[in-house]
Amino acid sequence: MEQPIVTDTLILDPVILTNHIEKHFHARHREQLPLLIELANKVEAVHAAHSDAPHGLAAALSRFHDDLVEHMHKEEVILFPAMRQGGMPGIEHPIHVMRADHADHIETAEAIRRLAGNLVLPEGACRTWAALYEGLGEFLADFADHVRTENEQLFPLFEH
């Protein structure tokens, strides 16, 4: 039986850690991003003339969604199964690719935050706009935890 993950605890079992990453972070991102794209499209359409509207946010989120889904798929199909079996010769190469993807994704997340005015709502913002920024804040925090978990806990288990 898997033990629950405590965020401030270092987990050294790659089976437990990869399962947690898939069930918690990957599943959550797959739920979050389509909803955020939908909300961003609504806010951009309704408030197109508003100077503080997050113009281009829906498109940026859509590109990020596509990139992240591809990245997670590579982890789930190639990297994580190898890690669950104790690694493989040359595993540092796909880990290096994943770390490079993470660096790119962090830059994209920062750009998305900027597009959304650092998640500061303008006065009189509608409920949809507020829901967008609240959800975006949750996604960005989850995403940062996801990257940190992989970069600081999982990958070091296989980098020698």
Results as ranks from 00 to 15, higher is better:
E38S: 14
L39Y: 11
L39N: 05
N41C: 07
N41Y: 00
N41D: 10
K42L: 08
K42W: 00
E44C: 05
H47G: 11
A48Q: 13
A49Y: 02
H50V: 01
D52F: 12
A53V: 10
P54Q: 05
P54Y: 02
H55Q: 13
H55I: 11
H55E: 11
A58K: 01
A60V: 03
L61F: 04
S62E: 14
R63C: 07
R63S: 13
R63G: 12
F64Y: 12
D67V: 03
L68E: 05
L68T: 07
L68D: 05
V69Y: 08
V69N: 10
E70Q: 15
E70L: 14
K74W: 02
K74H: 09
E75D: 12
F80C: 06
F80P: 04
P81V: 05
P81E: 04
P81N: 07
M83K: 07
R84A: 03
Q85F: 03
G87L: 06
G87S: 00
M88A: 14
M88D: 00
I91F: 02
E92N: 11
H93S: 13
P94Y: 01
I95G: 01
V97M: 14
R99W: 00
D101P: 07
D101L: 01
D101K: 08
H102D: 09
E110L: 15
L119N: 14
V120D: 13
L121K: 00
L121H: 04
G124T: 06
G124Y: 01
C126E: 03
W129T: 08
W129R: 07
A131V: 01
L132A: 10
